[in-house]
């Protein structure tokens, strides 16, 4: 445990889901300033669904993300600014724009079985001189060996670190460490391994600790847990827990606790919370950012959000298929209207 663990804060990316993609430049500047001052080395800024995510399907950004990335770069004295890109949604052109605005870390995310769609983006990121991170989303859906084989594809394509991403907050104790260990064994010294945890079953911090104990070198968090579903592993709790366990992060605990309480909490529309819908996401293995979309569809079509999410889980929909939430809500509404009780 002598090598320091690098914490990447995703408040301004994963937290974008919980903010319905309505971050203002002022909020971005204040969060970056606080994280940067507290010694957080990497700060991720993008639409919640990554570059180019501003859309009908995922929600339009209030502010242009390139402008927000530029503001973050301007505000950071020591921190690197990272961006997320989902191939099939974002493009190499989007990555060039982000790089032009000063982003220096490219995090390329695919579903956990589809790593080979990322090759052109890793190649482009490396050609731009960016640091690269691979993101295997919904990693709980496949076993450790299959996940490690996908990590290998990303490393061969140019990833310098590959994350086990618990997008659904579905990993119960044992799941994260088995996957992290398998990835560490596969990629060895060629790349680092990371872990991104969610709180839907409230195990994001515990899984982060287990990930580090199994060889992960990079860990994600978000201030106040601001993120999709019941939120992310909170940066301030991860940092405090790691320090108590003697795991060096270089992050000032008082600084990140102040950032969470004094900077982020005042602008939150609601605190991330494991309500029935969010727990259902962890339990049924549903992509966390579907939460607000399911709530909107529930309101529009008069069917319960947790029922929508349960069906979405059963259908095996993956990150990006937000449109299927409306489709499922329409089916549930049609079934309700056809049932004898409704007549």
């Amino acid at each position: 445990m002598s090598e320091p663990i690098r914490i990447t804060d995703s408040t301004l990316r994963d937290g974008s889901h919980a903010m319905a993609h309505r971050f203002t430049e002022e909020q971005v500047r204040s969060v970056v300033h606080a994280l940067d001052s507290a010694g957080v080395e990497v700060i991720e800024v993008s639409h919640g669904d990554g570059l180019g995510g501003s859309s009908f399907n995922y929600g339009f950004s209030l502010e242009d993300e390139i402008k927000l990335i530029g503001a973050a770069v301007d505000e950071a004295a020591q921190a690197e600014i990272a961006v997320l890109l989902l191939p099939g949604l974002g493009t190499v052109e989007d990555l060039r724009h982000a790089h032009g605005a000063g982003a220096s870390v490219a995090r390329i995310a695919t579903h956990c079985t589809e790593a080979d769609v990322s090759a052109q983006h890793f190649a482009a990121a490396r050609a731009l001189g960016m640091e690269t991170v691979g993101f295997l989303m919904l990693s709980h859906r496949v076993g450790p060996d299959e996940l490690a084989a996908q990590a290998r594809i990303m490393v061969d394509a140019g990833a310098q670190c590959v994350y086990v991403v618990d997008s659904a907050g579905a990993m119960v104790l044992g799941d994260a460490q088995a996957r992290v260990a398998a990835l560490v064994k596969e990629v060895g010294a060629e790349a680092q391994v990371g872990f991104h945890g969610h709180q839907n079953l409230s195990l994001g911090v515990a899984n982060s600790v287990l990930a580090v104990q199994n060889g992960a070198r990079q860990i994600d968090g978000a201030l106040c847990a601001l993120g999709a579903g019941a939120g992310n592993a909170p940066t301030e709790i991860v940092a405090a827990t790691f320090e108590r366990m003697g795991i060096t992060t270089g992050v000032d605990i008082q600084g990140v606790m102040a950032a969470a309480q004094d900077i982020v909490q005042p602008f939150l529309p609601r605190l991330p919370f494991a309500d029935r819908s969010a727990i259902t996401q962890g339990y049924a293995g549903v992509y966390s950012s579907f939460l607000l979309h399911a709530e909107r569809a529930a309101e529009r079509y008069g069917v319960p959000a947790h029922a929508i999410l349960q069906k979405v889980g059963e259908a095996g929909y993956v990150g990006g298929q937000e449109d299927m939430i409306i489709d499922v809500a329409l089916q549930l509404a049609a079934e309700r209207d056809a049932s004898p009780a409704a007549r």
Binding site: G88, L89, H111, E114, A315, Y317, V318, D323, I326
Partner: peptide
């Protein structure tokens, strides 16, 4: 936007 879904049995193409 294009999404690849690996679910088995394979999903029929959907477009929105």
């Amino acid at each position: 936007i294009i999404i690849l879904n690996p679910v088995d049995p394979p999903m029929i193409m959907r477009d929105t």
